[in-house]
């Protein structure tokens, strides 16, 4: 029982981080219909941006977070402007490949500046343990879940009620109709990439804190795919459910047989693709000829 609770907390913590990473992915897909293979690398770059501001430049925590968020937003907007905009209307494979190339460049740049050995980062989240239902669980995982829930809730509120949030949903729904309404689609595209980079930064920060700050953060990007397919490529609530489910499933699988967490998300992915390709909450696409 106590192992079950422990696995659940670990799974939810991983799932929360996954949901944050997936949120950025879904934002980009919804607004710009680009599949972003560089999401894991955005996470990596975000974590190192924060590390630079917090540890290397010795800024206070709050200022470091602000600097990191600003830098991530600028990076996101820059990527959209320079790399993705010229490819609007191209083949999906061209768009996929350009983000894969971008991922290679981002990862290489991080390696050039910080090397491949993990970096020491002072603990930001509380380090102690708590007892939940008879199981000892680390406090940092619980706080990570809380932070992710707050951020995801904030984004949900933003989409529902804020002016720009509504505009983003309009663009996602129908670009031409949004243009007719006087919404600047270009600005929305930039906004989507900025938000994606920022949510990736937060995810990277949490992950660096509960695991370690190293190159391996980037590999998290691949696990985003099972999450978004499960939740539906264009659904924000779907990412939360998807993240939680994938996080839990892989931890339970790991609990049953060590190492199984590497493959469990992909088995779920194949099952979902075969049974319900547009995910739990996604909109089925109807193709007209």
């Amino acid at each position: 029982m106590s192992q079950f609770v422990q696995l659940t907390v670990y799974g939810l913590a991983n799932g929360a981080v996954l949901a944050l990473a997936a949120l950025g992915f879904v934002l980009i897909y919804k607004a710009t219909s680009v599949i972003n293979f560089a999401q894991g690398e955005l996470l990596l770059v975000g974590a190192y941006l924060f590390y630079t501001a917090f540890v290397l430049l010795r800024l206070p925590f709050a200022v470091a977070v602000l600097v990191g968020v600003a830098a991530a937003a600028v990076l996101g907007v820059g990527i959209e402007r320079v790399i993705l905009r010229p490819l609007i209307g191209e083949d999906p494979i061209a768009v996929i490949m350009v983000t894969i190339g971008l991922a290679a460049v981002l990862k290489a740049v991080v390696t050039m500046f910080f090397g491949t050995t993990p970096r020491e980062m002072p603990k930001v989240l509380p380090a102690g343990t708590a007892t939940v239902a008879g199981a000892t669980v680390p406090l940092d995982r619980l706080v990570a879940v809380a932070v992710a829930v707050v951020v995801l809730a904030a984004f949900t509120v933003f989409f529902r009620w804020s002016r720009h949030g509504v505009a983003m949903r309009a663009v996602a729904d129908d670009q031409q109709a949004a243009l007719v309404q006087g919404i600047s689609v270009r600005r929305i595209f930039a906004l989507a990439w900025a938000f994606a980079a920022v949510s990736a930064l937060i995810a990277g920060l949490l992950l660096a804190d509960i695991a370690e700050l190293s190159q391996n953060l980037g590999t998290f990007g691949l696990v985003v795919f099972p999450v978004v397919i499960l939740g539906g490529l264009d659904s924000v609530p779907g990412t939360i459910i998807g993240g939680a489910v994938i996080g839990l499933v892989s931890q339970y699988a790991e609990g049953m047989s060590a190492g199984a967490s590497q493959v469990a998300p992909y088995v779920v992915l194949v099952l979902i693709l075969l049974l319900r390709p547009y995910g739990l909450f996604g909109q089925p696409r109807i193709e007209r000829v």
């Binding site: 790399i83 010229p86 490819l87 191209e90 083949d91 061209a94 490949m97 350009v98 894969i100 190339g101 971008l102 991922a103 290679a104 460049v105 981002l106 990862k107 290489a108 740049v109 390696t111 050039m112």
Partner: peptide
Amino acid sequence: DQLPAVQAAAFGLVIVLFLLFEP
């Protein structure tokens, strides 16, 4: 000194540049 990283960056850049300028 940074050869592996330079090679990886060049690989990524080649993909991006080809797609942008000669898909």
